[in-house]
Simulated assay, not measured.
Amino acid sequence: MAKFYSELTSSLREFIAEQKLFFTASAPTKGRVNLSPKGIDTFRCIDSKTVAYLDLTGSGNETAAHLHENRRMTIMFCSFTEQPLILRLYGQGKAIRPRHPEWQEFYPLFNVTPGERQIMVLTVEAAQTSCGYGVPLYEFKQQRETLINWAEKKGDSGIEQYWHDKNQKSIDGLPTQIFSD
C-alpha cells in the first residue's frame, strides 16, 4: 500500500543511500515529459526536506529547462533487491550552476566528477512509498565509466562547447539557462 510522508525519515534516507540508480521526471507546461535514469555517486540527502544531485553533461538539458519554466520535479528510487520498495520524491526543483551564489554551499557535498554541469536541488513537498512487488530482482554489477571517460576526453573547453552546441535549449525549444547564474 502507498504511504505518504511530509519529509524524509531516517529510514527513507537510508534506503536512498543504498540505491545505485535513480530516475528524475520533469515536464514543461506544454511539451514532452522527460524521464532520465541517473547513476554514478551523484545523489545526496541534504536534510529531511532537501535533496540534490550533481548533474553531469548529457545529450540534452531537459530538466534544467523544465525547472526554469515551472520548477516541478519527481525523483524515483526502486529497490531491485529482495526487499521491494519504490520511493518517489515530489517537489520544487532548481538548477544551481558554478556562477550561482549557492554553488559553494552544495558543491562540497559531491565528489569532483568530469563533465559536471550543475546541481539540481529538490525541495521535497511529499514522499511516497509503494510496494514495488512487480519490479524484478537485479544484481548491481558496476557503474559505467563511459560518460566520465567521454567528459575527460572532451576537457573543460570541449564540454563548454558541447553545452553551447547541444544544451542551451530543450527538445521543445525552452531555454535551459546553462550560461546564466
Rank of each mutant, 00 (worst) to 15 (best):
V33E: 01
V33K: 08
N34D: 12
N34Y: 06
N34L: 02
L35F: 06
P37A: 12
G39V: 04
I40D: 11
I40C: 11
D41Q: 05
D41M: 06
D41Y: 08
T42Q: 00
I46N: 05
S48E: 15
T50L: 03
A52E: 06
A52L: 06
D55L: 06
L56P: 04
L56G: 06
L56Y: 05
T57M: 14
T57P: 06
G58Q: 07
S59V: 15
G60V: 15
G60F: 13
N61R: 09
T63Q: 07
A64D: 12
A65M: 01
A65H: 03
H66L: 00
H68K: 15
H68Q: 15
N70H: 08
R72N: 14
M73S: 07
M73V: 12
M73L: 13
M73E: 10
M73C: 11
M73T: 07
M73W: 01
I75H: 04
I75M: 09
F77S: 03
S79H: 07
S79A: 07
S79V: 06
E82G: 13
E82F: 07
Q83N: 13
Q83G: 09
Q83S: 14
P84R: 07
P84S: 07
L85T: 05
L85S: 08
L85E: 11
I86R: 05
I86N: 07
L87R: 02
L87Q: 00
L87D: 01
R88I: 05
Y90R: 08
G91L: 04
Q92M: 13
Q92V: 08
Q92H: 11
G93S: 02
K94S: 10
R97W: 09
P98A: 09
P101F: 02
P101L: 00
E102V: 04
E102N: 10
Q104N: 15
Q104T: 15
E105V: 14
E105R: 12
F106R: 01
F106N: 03
P108V: 05
L109N: 10
F110L: 05
F110G: 00
F110C: 00
N111H: 14
T113D: 00
P114S: 05
P114R: 05
G115E: 08
E116Y: 12
E116M: 14
Q118P: 00
Q118N: 10
M120G: 08
V121N: 02
V121P: 01
V121W: 04
V121S: 04
L122H: 02
L122F: 05
L122S: 03
L122A: 05
V124T: 02
A126Q: 14
A127I: 00
Q128V: 11
G132S: 04
G132F: 02
Y133K: 11
G134K: 11
V135Y: 00
V135W: 02
P136W: 08
Y138E: 12
Y138V: 04
E139L: 11
E139I: 10
K141E: 14
R144E: 12
T146V: 10
T146S: 12
T146R: 14
I148S: 08
N149E: 13
W150P: 00
A151R: 05
E152L: 11
K153G: 06
K153R: 13
K154G: 01
G155F: 04
G155N: 05
D156N: 15
S157T: 13
G158D: 02
G158Q: 06
I159Q: 03
I159S: 02
E160I: 10
E160S: 11
